[in-house]
């Protein structure tokens, strides 16, 4: 039979076995379509947002890059509170390189851009996501209790879009971890067989946990 017989929608003709199901089927189909539209729109909005954030960071980097590299490096420490270890990690270079740059040794154009981009990123974090206080320590915190990954790791992986989502609380930590690596538990999971403790010399050391 035709999906909907003639005159079935006006209340005069009732078809007991089909009518209730048809009513719910129709409603379920409509709501399903709304969900599909919402889902597609969400994906579109996410893609557009990511693209615009990337462009905003690029644009800010271009402006910051006009400043002296040594001055920018000083800012990383004095204004943003980054340790040189953390700065080197974020820039993807050794601490020795950072030390040389601070002594006004020349940077490659790519490294100069990297420094400018890091400053631009920190500026965006402060202006667009003011809820994140003390950006330096936030970058070093683990994203989740169950992972060793930190925001600094994500920055080093060039996943700024995930960092912005994390900062805005748009994405729960586990979703961020899955976006980084679907197998993150194996790759970046916390190994609970070991623990970091303060040794007799006062320095941190790794020891086996006592599970007895």
């Amino acid at each position: 039979m035709s999906p909907e017989g003639t005159g079935t929608g006006t209340g005069m003709i009732t078809e007991p076995p089909k009518a209730p199901a048809t009513a719910y089927d129709g409603l379920a189909r409509q709501v399903g379509e709304v969900r599909d539209v919402v889902h597609i729109t969400k994906q579109d909005a996410e893609g557009l947002h990511e693209q615009l954030q990337g462009r905003a960071l690029d644009s800010r980097t271009a402006a910051v890059a006009q400043r002296e590299p040594a001055e920018l490096l000083d800012d990383l420490s004095s204004e943003w509170g980054l340790s040189w270890t953390l700065a080197a990690k974020l820039l993807g270079v050794s601490q020795t390189s950072v030390r040389k740059w601070r002594r006004n040794e020349s940077l490659t154009p790519e490294n100069r851009r990297g420094v400018a981009r890091l400053v631009a990123f920190l500026e965006m974090l402060r202006s667009d996501y003011p809820a994140v206080c003390d950006q330096a320590s936030w970058l070093e915190m683990r994203i989740s209790e169950e992972s060793t990954l930190t925001p600094a790791d994500l920055y080093a992986m060039d996943r700024c879009e995930l960092l912005f989502d994390l900062a805005a609380l748009r994405c729960p930590p586990h979703e961020v971890l899955y976006a980084v690596d679907p197998d993150w538990r194996a790759s970046y999971g916390v190994d609970d067989r070991f623990a970091v403790v303060k040794g007799p010399d006062g320095l941190p050391s790794i020891v086996m946990r006592d599970n007895s």
């Binding site: 039979m1 035709s2 017989g5 006006t10 209340g11 005069m12 003709i13 009732t14 078809e15 007991p16």
Partner: peptide
């Protein structure tokens, strides 16, 4: 052009709603 013919014998019930708008 199509015609659907539905037929059958039943002990009770109605297809046309006696409590409908008409």
């Amino acid at each position: 052009l199509r015609v659907v013919m539905r037929y059958g014998a039943s002990a009770e019930g109605r297809i046309v709603n006696a409590e409908g708008p008409l």
